[in-house]
Simulated assay, not measured.
Amino acid sequence: MKNIKTLHTAFLLFLLGIMATSCGEDTIPKPQAYLRLDYPMGKYIPYTGSCPYTFGYNSLAHIKDKGNCNLTIEYPRMKATLFITYKPVEGNLNALLRDAQKLTYEHVIKADEILEQPYINDEKKAYGMFYQVGGNAATNAQFYVTDSTHHFLTGSMYFYAKPNFDSIMPAASYIKDDMRNIMETLSWK
């Protein structure tokens, strides 16, 4: 009889233990973790080639002259390139503006959103637009800057990987800051 009471007491304690632990909140699976990507802050140095413009660029990037004042600014660690294209304004400003806008809005199929941020610097005679392209588009940012009489400069960022915005977001944000710096430090010669 003593064994039955002990067994009965053990069973009741076991049952109470299950009831006490089962009344908690539902368990929620943890979200997937992503690799934290921190990039070192680069020092901005001047680009002063033979072209009719100068600007500050990140010392951690590599500039390559592609001829006709067109450049690539490569970010090997991020597997990205910023393409800089220069065109003289020769009565064709409207066509240049249309082409720059068309290039951006070709990504509307894959983009979640396209934010336009105007840029005006009367002191340097630099006027333009910075485009942030959200989503899995081929480019995440583009810009153009012009003095509206002689010079027109565009910039587009591309990665050497299939666009997956969640994965490239830290690198894209880093390069967007560099692109804004190029716009803000741009001076015409």
Rank of each mutant, 00 (worst) to 15 (best):
I120A: 08
K87W: 14
Y75F: 15
L97Q: 10
E113G: 08
N121M: 06
Q101V: 01
D112C: 05
S59Q: 11
Y75K: 02
I109Q: 15
M78S: 13
A61H: 03
A80C: 11
T72I: 11
N70S: 09
T72W: 01
L97Y: 08
T54N: 14
F55A: 07
Y53L: 12
I109H: 15
N92M: 06
G56D: 14
F55C: 05
G56R: 03
V108M: 08
I114A: 05
E90M: 03
E123G: 00
Q117S: 13
Y119S: 02
L71A: 04
Y75G: 05
A95K: 10
E116H: 15
F55D: 12
P76H: 06
D122N: 05
Y57Q: 05
L96V: 11
E90C: 01
Q117L: 10
Y119F: 14
L97E: 09
T81S: 13
T72A: 06
D112Q: 14
I120K: 15
L96G: 07
L93R: 09
C69V: 02
D65Q: 01
I84R: 02
D65N: 02
K64L: 02
E74C: 03
Q101F: 03
L115W: 12
K110P: 04
N94I: 02
D112M: 11
K110M: 15
K79T: 14
C69W: 05
D65V: 00
A100I: 01
K102M: 07
R77P: 09
I84C: 09
L103A: 13
N92Y: 04
N92H: 05
K110V: 12
N121V: 00
Q101S: 03
L103S: 14
N92I: 11
Y86K: 08
T85R: 12
K66Q: 12
K110N: 15
D99R: 11
N92F: 06
V89C: 12
Y119K: 02
I84P: 05
N70C: 09
Y53M: 13
Y75S: 10
A100T: 02
Q101E: 08
L103E: 08
K102G: 04
I114K: 05
L115T: 13
L60H: 13
E74D: 08
Q101P: 00
T54I: 04
N94C: 02
I109V: 13
V108P: 07
D99P: 01
V108H: 14
N68T: 03
T81L: 04
F55L: 08
